[in-house]
Design a protein around this nucleic acid. Sequence first.
DNA 1: TGAATTCGTTCACTTAAGTTAAGAAATGAA
DNA 2: TTCATTTCTTAACTTAAGTGAACGAATTCA
Lengths: 193, 193
Amino acid sequence: MQDLLFGFISKYVTLTEDEKNAIVSLNIFRSAKKGTTLLKEGQKSNDGYFVLKGCIRTYYVIDGEEKTTAFYTEMEGLTPHCVINKTPSEYFISCVEDSILTIADPEMEVDIFKKFPKFETLCRVLSEELLAKQQINFDEYKTSSPEQRYLNLLQKRPDLIQRVPQHQLASYLGIKPQSLSRLRARILKKNKG
Amino acid sequence: MQDLLFGFISKYVTLTEDEKNAIVSLNIFRSAKKGTTLLKEGQKSNDGYFVLKGCIRTYYVIDGEEKTTAFYTEMEGLTPHCVINKTPSEYFISCVEDSILTIADPEMEVDIFKKFPKFETLCRVLSEELLAKQQINFDEYKTSSPEQRYLNLLQKRPDLIQRVPQHQLASYLGIKPQSLSRLRARILKKNKG
DNA sequence: TGAATTCGTTCACTTAAGTTAAGAAATGAA
DNA sequence: TTCATTTCTTAACTTAAGTGAACGAATTCA
């Protein structure tokens, strides 16, 4: 299961055995059952997450309703807002599927960065990549309708539509489950007739 | 006009006269008239922008229609996606008002960082702050209706509503100008009776 | 396994945004 | 200042999402 992580990292930097061992010795690998809540609203935490296998989601609870704002699947990572901000979390994080994650406190990072500056480069590159991706994501969301967003998702992350419950997907697309059902029926009709 | 920049920077780090002079000698201060296009779709550029005075916006042109995705006002900065990605720009950037900006190529930054490591800290802190802000922004956008978004804007950036044309605001809120008019009339009615 | 809950779809009705059009107000250029 | 253009608002109509309810299917778990 570590191989998943090292395979991913190898796309960015080359690690020596020493460096790999340093990572393993941090003991950051965790597995979590479907439905497990990793972070609760109001909670303080310093943990960042990286998905090796499975799927996790972030969601707000507003007027008793879940509003899913993001899904993270294989080789995607998340540093919750509350970690950066040192404030109680405004949202929940939970497992959509049984998952294998790395869970790491950025405090650790400082030590590792000193020992292996290579890791700092890795983290900077990853976060820049993430920022760029997020910007484009937001722009796409803003410039398209729910139907377009669904079709876009179908193109870009077809796996999500299979592995995530409809009502969570709907919320992620900014609509109600009933509207997603209707929208899908509408698309099907168009493609037939 | 440099004082605006140094006043802002002083909130994060303290600069010596030497360091201030180093910045001034970079000759990064520019002024631009309302309506000036700073970056066009399809264009390649390495320039990052920081607004000292005035207001700039980013917008896409989709099916001949402008879709405004962001406004940047005093003490806000923007590194366009095309700079990070080294690709042609997917959007336009233009001045909403007569503006005073710093326009800097990140290539320059490397030199400055070497001379004054303090600047790297400054940039890292600023970009982390920005990332956190953006995440929250996106989440708020996703979890609220156009009307809520308008009311939210009224709270958080009341100046924008004064200084930006309605049709650009509407686009920014994800709706048509007609809908913004209607929505405002609706709110006014509620508050009366 | 069987009962209970959650989930997904459909329907009828409501609400709000999109569209088209027209006219008033503000802005800008000659 | 005047004329032209752009911007903002209003209105009538269309379209799509929200709401509440019902029902069968799938999932959970005791």
